[in-house]
Design a protein around this nucleic acid. Sequence first.
DNA 1: CCTAAAAAGACATTTTATATCTTTTTAGGG
DNA 2: CCCTAAAAAGATATAAAATGTCTTTTTAGG
Lengths: 141, 141
Amino acid sequence: MMELTRKGEYAIRGIVYLAGKPIDKVCLLSDIAAAVNVPPTFLAKIFQQFSKIGLVKSFRGTGGGFMLGRPPESITLLEVVEAVEGPIIPNRCVVSPSDCERSGECTVHPVWRRVQDEVRGVLEGVTLKELLTETQTHTTC
Amino acid sequence: MMELTRKGEYAIRGIVYLAGKPIDKVCLLSDIAAAVNVPPTFLAKIFQQFSKIGLVKSFRGTGGGFMLGRPPESITLLEVVEAVEGPIIPNRCVVSPSDCERSGECTVHPVWRRVQDEVRGVLEGVTLKELLTETQTHTTC
DNA sequence: CCTAAAAAGACATTTTATATCTTTTTAGGG
DNA sequence: CCCTAAAAAGATATAAAATGTCTTTTTAGG
């Protein structure tokens, strides 16, 4: 259980790749997809989600493409993952206890809350910059 | 993401219910299912899985039913969840890095490992006994 | 206006989750 | 030795989510 989906995996690969480029370098989606070995059409959907919340900037038309929306050291893994997978929710009840018909009796509740906090804490503590390898840093597209 | 399935939720409800009964009390599946509001046939499958690994003991035929396999203070939430949901795996790569075609470049790897450790740690720290409410403790079926 | 590229939306396929139903096995009691 | 109660096992059904693909539209540069 608790498995990251392909979408999440692809999302991380794609944006980490971007993070390894000069901040103002515009990369073609097709190039990114090829580099990180992800179906281009699928990656397109992912980057559209990124674009909407400013994680990446997109440019249409000739010479268009994508670049990172903010410096790599300011983007956390948590943001990336939640952008495409939705919030980290170990259990439905964590979201709204009031919706839970058994909330009165549910002693498991605080446990899931702690799981949520721990996971978010770990992912929030990692930035894109920290995920770069030497070979990735400052290479051209 | 990271959401517990119904199966996992039902599993917890069912076994926590059992944990609230006297250790040698045999409970009917149909009674348990009704008490915790879970489809009986579905709960049957879950308890079959529990039974195979000794989390519960089952008895067939007239007067049959289920009882807890071990004292409630010795059964952790981690065991219960992994029994029905499988191991806690935030990312495929965590299982076998050698299978991962990108393991050389994958800097995210250790992060998922930490997530896994944290989640397992939290769930391992909670026993069925701790999940019981006063009302649940030592009631009859 | 022509072309390159992303955005948006519709569609297709596969896998997983969520059950249900039927048949089989096991055990107790008369 | 049957009869009944109950779990085990297996087959099947439906719905939802994951994983893509394809087509059309919008945007921008030359």
